[in-house]
Design a protein around this nucleic acid. Sequence first.
DNA 1: GATGAATGAGGTTTCATTCAT
DNA 2: AATGAATGAAACCTCATTCAT
Lengths: 207, 207, 207, 207
Amino acid sequence: MKNEKPSRRQREKLRQRQEMLAAALDLFAEKGYHNVSMHEIAEKAEFAIGTLYTVFQNKEDLYKALVLEECDSFEAALVQAIETPEDEIEKLRNYVRVKGDRFRSNLPFIRLFLAESKGASFNIRAGLDEALRKRYYAFLERLALIFENGIKNRRIRKIAPPYHLAVALDSVVDAFLLLWLEAPERHPYPEDPDAILDIFFKGLLDR
Amino acid sequence: MKNEKPSRRQREKLRQRQEMLAAALDLFAEKGYHNVSMHEIAEKAEFAIGTLYTVFQNKEDLYKALVLEECDSFEAALVQAIETPEDEIEKLRNYVRVKGDRFRSNLPFIRLFLAESKGASFNIRAGLDEALRKRYYAFLERLALIFENGIKNRRIRKIAPPYHLAVALDSVVDAFLLLWLEAPERHPYPEDPDAILDIFFKGLLDR
Amino acid sequence: MKNEKPSRRQREKLRQRQEMLAAALDLFAEKGYHNVSMHEIAEKAEFAIGTLYTVFQNKEDLYKALVLEECDSFEAALVQAIETPEDEIEKLRNYVRVKGDRFRSNLPFIRLFLAESKGASFNIRAGLDEALRKRYYAFLERLALIFENGIKNRRIRKIAPPYHLAVALDSVVDAFLLLWLEAPERHPYPEDPDAILDIFFKGLLDR
Amino acid sequence: MKNEKPSRRQREKLRQRQEMLAAALDLFAEKGYHNVSMHEIAEKAEFAIGTLYTVFQNKEDLYKALVLEECDSFEAALVQAIETPEDEIEKLRNYVRVKGDRFRSNLPFIRLFLAESKGASFNIRAGLDEALRKRYYAFLERLALIFENGIKNRRIRKIAPPYHLAVALDSVVDAFLLLWLEAPERHPYPEDPDAILDIFFKGLLDR
DNA sequence: GATGAATGAGGTTTCATTCAT
DNA sequence: AATGAATGAAACCTCATTCAT
């Protein structure tokens, strides 16, 4: 009975936290870190400003938590996507598919994420960007492993170091997704991941 | 002699403007738009705050001018790079080379630019990001034209629409450059542009 | 007991507001709208500048509130003065008496008010002056009604339209009060309102 | 020849000064002292800002000069109005007429003047208002003299001290003029000064 | 534990004035 | 004498954060 209570407390606290982060994501994604005030977040989350500060130490802390949790979820989905299938080519297809789904379903965060990871992250003093980049590089290594195995299996030609292939594939996927997401009518979203993969799979030069 | 005076004034005014923009670029690139105060810029540029406001209407105006002028210069260099050589393949090589040079020589701005164009631009109300994206898309069209001509000349295989090829190439170049520039020791900057181009030129799949 | 709390809060808030307005009145009356800073008001009222902005939206808002509330109180006193007695002549006497009392007890505001209503009000964008003038005209109509009734009762001769009589009486009262208040020794304040009223009541021309 | 040059210089300087004051009057009357910048005045007068400061020591100085000169002209007109006719009643009629003309032809300044003389003058530190009031009182004395003479002549009944009569007349004239000038259609401007004077001339009480 | 009133540092911007040309 | 570029003090206002209730 006694250790049930703290559990309820904790569950309650967690729900609070989720609601705050949800409100913050909406606002940050819409207006940017510096154009959102803590009061705004508190109001949208329907808590008092003081309550916000019982959960997060300060605005920066809240932002970091938000970005990291979103990244966790994003990364988990991608990792699962490349772990499930056996076949290397199929892993890559799955990767393209799942990344596309995530982009579509969470565009606001994608923007925030790209600003943080690709561009300069100016929102936060202590390099959130650096932490994110490290995780990103780690993920690239996993992707590279797929190419490496594919090369070992003789299913993929070694036209460049596996890590480079991973970098290239990832960047191209991002670029196409951004394209599609910005002008959906001009660049319709391709259900078939091969539309992207083929660019790599087929050689470009005439011979 | 008399019409030298206005010219001297103008030259002086221009030099002033350049110094202000240079100071601003350094600061914005280091700390981000919202973490730099006009006083800071004035101090770094060694002018009084009021003088800043005789040249730029307000902070936003200064920022826009900065980004647009840097973009102009960046774009001009790239356009020249793909116009000079006759041969399509050589154009692409030149493009990779020049873009790399620019990245290396102006990394601070690159960060700012990526934050504005790829990520979410929350700094400026009246979509600077949109203007930049439009110019970026226009440039991609020029790049696509090279592929198109290469295809006509039978030097390039049509494995995807030219515009898609342009998008893919550009994003891969960016990705590699960022990689190299972030960890120069682990990913040394390749003098040979083919290190990148080959990823496209050679088909990936084993046949 | 529980609904005492919000009431206490409100009372507290109201007291705060009154203190702020009092400090502002003193300063505005002494130095004028543009020569008083929000910091000054905050300091005099012994609040932090931010607290000022939790009560009033901005400087203009504070000023308007100040002027309007003082006017309300002033107007209420005058209205009561002309409503209480039955007799028309007595109404006028009361009016002169009460206006004089108000002038004497709140000279700083009188200045502010005259600057706003008679002179050019350049302090506030959205014509506070216009609103005040409308209220002033409305009050003049009430005054005119007294003359009208007096004329009907045959106690007052109709030497001019009642509204004109009201305008004239009011302006003369103001003029004498200003005179007396500026040089109290040379123009001692007359306890007897007839000292003013007689100028109207007795014909000036010899026959 | 030598003392012609300084004279031309002086004439030139005077013309400059007049143009500056004219521009300043327009602007001050339209927007108020604190909402007009020295740059604005310089631009409207078509001089460089520095030139403004060769003629006037500072903004306050310029404003004082402006108000004083306008007052001079206003006062001179009124003085002449009450000096020309022989007859006292005619003097008063002339006074009402001329003051009305002046109001009509220079409303912008009237506002400025009323703000300065009646209301609180907050624009200027060293009491411009005081100087103006002294002149105003002096003028009232002249007006009082007319009443005094009229009383001696038995043309005017002594219903109050002459100075009081002067104060009363002057304030009523101002009040009516303001009324007429603010709502010209509702309170048309009376060509006949007796419309105002009669209020004083005829006794109000029925007997 | 939750609240939200109060705080005040610090941001952007204006504008009267100076002074080298 | 006339100019106007340069100055910087000082204004208004916001908002992250605290702490008494």
